[in-house]
Design a binder for these strands. Structure first.
Length: 569
DNA sequence: GCCGTTTTCGGCCCGACTGTTTTCAGTCG
């Protein structure tokens, strides 16, 4: 799909036009189109063929023409035109915190900057200080921005951010000076990666709260410390911001700082059309403050129901709220069992008994043991004989276990030629069969799609694990026609996994939503290799909620009997 | 460049903070 390529072109165009000082509204239009294309699960070529490009919000005649040109010729002449004389490296510098388009343009024009090295040298020189608007402080801040960018490299996975933020919140609570403290920002929306961590607190003494915050043991550098806002760098290079707000505007502030930006812009437009104004202090009619102590109130004044944070991405949630058709999202407490767990029979650390005991803490009814098959030798894959012995062991254990049922399963490899790593007569003996790709990631889209479809069409396969193989920040999804996978899964009754392992989150939020639209059933599983990793279920739930999934879309919300009956076999 | 139960032209979200300024531009979220 060319969706991503086009999205990147429009984003790049926005960057370059910003650098050149073009009309900010035009720049915004390109940014919006880029975002819409990035979120689009339908193939842009298909929409173009059907003449539906302009049905996309943010795509008008100008951008539609550029998309068509790209699909026909592989280039966008307007893009070639604007980037003339502007090097790639130069525009990359806009990623540096505290360095925006105006300052970059100034440094480029006056000091002939083209890349990071030249920029660093220039900022340390006397000549830079003499430029209008530039001073020692500003140069220093940009240099710090460069250091931060190099160190952190940008965003961290949600699963890494959560423990850090929990630690910070616990530490702040022990000080006894905050009344409430909550995460906001992309963390509250449960995005798969987090840039900065945003926290919001209420309490009497803002200065003291910020003072305590900037002196927490996890802090390595203090960027700002005022009466209402503190900003620090923690171990590992992640920035954490804490804002202290008055209790009466806590709801408005929470709404405002949770975002997303696109969601908030839509809300403020609606407010404006009703003669109202929203900011982080409340909702206003003229000078009069008419609400904002709770988030519910902010939405309610606009005539909307409260919208769950996971949906706030301007992906149709506001229209759904207006129509009263918001989904009733699946919740962690709906989950009745985990369907992908490794034991010490393959590469897991715990025994079957230990896993069963841990699962009881989550009040699960069942737990599916899904160790690797023999092809994945590096992970201690089981031979057919070992698997048969494991099945017997599980049967025996179940006669002793109380309050939980272990299910005998496997994570059987889908081999490069599309066949499965266990013969049918072995798979038939299992309660549930999970199948997955662990090799041959570089196959072309046709081969890979056919390979996975082979498993989906196999009557013995119940679930496809981590269907795209992507690793966040590590490995791109393999080339596969997901929409075809979703449609055939729906047709055959094969469930697709949302793998909750923090680096996978595979399917992704957008994938889930498309899979559900096409009628596929999903399961949420942790792929735990240690007992405590069963807790990753919350990450899988976050993905499912961001994918607009309801309880009925997720098979492992069903009690044991009904779950087993819902499987393909 | 997009968009329209105020509009096909004239709008396009809102405010804080910082650093550089004698009233504001740039950057960020």
């Amino acid at each position: 799909m060319k969706n991503r390529e086009l999205s990147e072109i429009f984003d790049k165009m926005a960057d370059i036009l910003e650098f050149k000082g073009d009309n900010p509204f035009k720049i915004n239009a390109y940014r919006k189109a880029a975002r819409v294309l990035k979120d689009l699960t339908e193939d842009i070529e298909k929409l173009a063929r059907e003449g539906k490009l302009k049905d996309l919000s943010g795509v008008g005649s100008g951008i539609a023409k550029k998309i068509e040109e790209y699909l026909e010729t592989g280039r966008v002449s307007k893009y070639e035109e604007v980037k003339e004389g502007v090097s790639e490296g130069l525009i990359e510098l806009l990623k540096i915190p505290d360095l925006g388009p105006k300052t970059l343009a100034l440094l480029h024009k006056e000091m002939n900057i083209h890349n990071m090295t030249e920029l660093e040298e220039a900022l340390q020189s006397e000549k830079a200080r003499a430029l209008p608007g530039m001073g020692a402080k500003k140069a220093e801040n940009i240099l710090r921005g460069i250091r931060l960018l190099k160190e952190s490299g940008g965003r961290i996975p949600l699963g890494v951010a959560l423990p850090l933020v929990n630690q910070v919140i616990e530490l702040m609570k022990t000080k006894g000076i905050v009344r409430e403290i909550f995460p906001a920002g992309s963390l509250r929306r449960c995005r798969e990666t987090i840039g900065d961590i945003d926290l919001l607190a209420t309490g009497k003494d803002g200065t003291r709260i910020i003072e305590e915050f900037t002196h927490l043991p996890v802090v390595t550098e203090v960027l700002a410390a005022g009466k209402t806002k503190g900003s620090v760098i923690t171990h590992g290079g992640t920035q954490v911001d804490l804002r202290v707000v008055p209790g009466e505007s806590f709801g408005a502030a929470l709404q405002y700082f949770t975002g997303s930006k696109a969601h908030n812009v839509r809300l403020r437009e609606i407010a404006k059309s009703q003669g109202l104004k929203i900011n982080e202090y409340g909702v206003f009619r003229g000078e009069e403050r008419i609400g904002g102590s709770t988030e519910e109130e902010v939405y309610q004044i606009l005539g909307l129901p409260w919208i769950p944070p996971e949906l706030r991405e301007d992906r149709g949630e506001i229209d759904a709220a207006m129509k009263g058709s918001l989904p009733s999202l699946v919740e962690l407490s709906d989950i009745k069992g985990d369907l992908h767990v490794h034991s010490d029979w393959s590469d897991g650390s715990a025994t079957l008994e230990e896993l069963a005991q841990e699962a009881k803490k989550f009040r699960y009814e069942y737990l599916l043991i899904a160790d690797h098959s023999i092809a994945v030798r590096i992970a201690g894959g089981l031979s057919p004989e070992e698997l048969l012995r494991q099945i017997e062991k599980i049967k025996k254990l179940n006669t002793k276990l109380k309050g939980i049922t272990l299910l005998a399963g496997t994570e059987v490899d889908i081999l490069s030629d599309g066949s499965l790593d266990f013969p049918d007569e072995v798979l038939e003996k299992l309660d549930v069969v999970v199948a997955a790709v662990h090799s041959g990631f570089k196959q072309d889209i046709h081969t890979m799609t056919k390979r996975i479809l082979g498993a989906i069409e196999n009557p013995l396969v119940d679930i496809i694990a981590h269907p795209t193989g992507r690793l966040i920040g590590g490995r791109e999804p393999y080339a596969v026609d997901l929409n075809e996978i979703f449609s055939r899964s729906a047709a055959t009754g094969t469930a697709l996994e949302i793998n909750a392992y923090y680096e996978r989150l595979d399917l992704s939020d957008l994938n889930c939503r498309e899979a559900q639209k096409r009628g596929a059933k999903l399961v949420i599983s942790t792929d735990a290799h240690q007992p405590n990793q069963l807790d990753w279920m919350r990450l899988g739930i976050a993905v499912a909620r961001r994918g607009w999934l309801e309880k009925g879309d997720v098979l492992n919300t069903l009690p044991l009997e009904r779950f087993l009956n819902s499987l393909k076999r």
